[in-house]
Write a protein that binds this DNA or RNA. Sequence first.
RNA 1: GUCCCCAUCGUCUAGAGGCCCAGGACGGAGCCCUCUCACGGCUCAAACCGGGGUUCGAAUCCCCGUGGGGACGCCA
Length: 465
Amino acid sequence: MPVVVRFAPSPTGFLHIGGARTALFNWLYARHSSGLFRLRIEDTDRARSTEAATRAILEGLSWLGLDWDGEVVHQFARAPRHAEVARALLASGRAYPCYCTPAELAERREKARAEGRTLGYDRRCRERDPRTVPAEIPPVIRLKAPESGETVIEDLVQGTVRVGNEQLDDMVLLRADGTPVYMLSVVVDDHDMGISHIIRGDDHLTNAFRQTQLYRAMDWQTPQFAHIPLIHGPDGAKLSKRHGALGVEAYREMGYLPEALDNYLLRLGWAHGDDEIISRAQAIEWFDIKNVGRSPARFDFAKLDSLNAHYLRQCDNRHLVELLRPFLEKLLGRAPDADGEVRLARGMDGLKQRAKTLKELAASAALYVRPRPLALEAKAAALLDRDARQRLARLGERLERAPAWSQAALESEVRALAKAEGVKLGQLAQPLRVALTGSTVSPSIFEVMEVLGRAEVLGRIKDIA
RNA sequence: GUCCCCAUCGUCUAGAGGCCCAGGACGGAGCCCUCUCACGGCUCAAACCGGGGUUCGAAUCCCCGUGGGGACGCCA
């Protein structure tokens, strides 16, 4: 049987981190099995669905490198088909009209809760005499679910999960206004799209029971289920906004690389031995549902950071300069000019091993594109006492005459002066760093000098002397 | 309340009865390298939720408890 999976978000918000992982697992499984990864937008909730959210989800998936096969299916457009299935069930006697009003149901539910009974619908319309039907109430259509026995699902992650049918009530298929409910739409769409494996969040596990009953009622083959554990916040509770339940675009803005986020998400609930850094190609080769863990994982920014730092170091310098552009623009108020970008590219080796995110990288890279005179950090300025300034002035004179402007040659020059003045290298290098970068922290000061060039270095030294 | 699921270092996890007085990674502590900060290298601290079984032998299997999570809509 060919593998066809789907990612089916509802467009009521951005693509959040949990959804991103579900999409990733589906995508990986499809690519691993040479199957299809379909995308379905579940927009049947007209009040909450927005075009902007759909766009954000598509963009998020693209940014993560998760491409989908075929056309995007919009669920709402298929409502007539869903209703048709419900009517077929009604015609074959496997569904029935129910005239209980929402108010009545809520009241009974409240009563049941107070008495500690099961909350489900009591099936009172199931065997109703047609002559007692209230003409003024438009009915909903409910499924005639089995009243005894049990419904069992063989879940690829959770194993065999069973529930007594007395726990499940007769779910609504069609609302009073004739529109289908989610549970029906999902089953019909998954069937019509030929979905072979449903990989989705654990929160849908109990839905799977009802959906299985629907498949049975239609005499359709049920797909394989794989309910993956949810991602929790650092406190173990549901992932909240402040704990990382953000849209993927928020991660982009924080300066994370998509490959880092993918790698991180992949390792949340899935492992391949001791491997931590896993390339896209390896992930496709190795990914299998049976390696997915059963317990929920907590979201941890520190680990994401370290992965991001790794991929940052791995990244091509020219590419990094491009990725950095929007961050620098935001930081400096304008994009770096052509000369600036050349310096950035040349200084990138030293910069990128010191940053965890593009945002941090931009902050440290700014030293190469900021115009003179540099603003000095308070802690840095404190290092520039009278002695230091005078020494720097002498260094300036020396550098003016320096025959070569390479990192190695510059190091010799600086070391020679330190020796001549009888001070340690650090006593000269740190003030120099302050003069050239405005900070006490930077890449190798000799690398900075080489990248900045003679004129700029001399200028920056003069600025503080 | 009812039903379902889960349970190894702080976190992510390896572990599919003996290879485990439990391994890796992140984070933490320390040392080395060193012009600062990083990177890198080395070292250390740190876990099988509790109790019963099964077995010659259990982190691994079963039961109970406890803790956490999820689901119970004419939302998706």
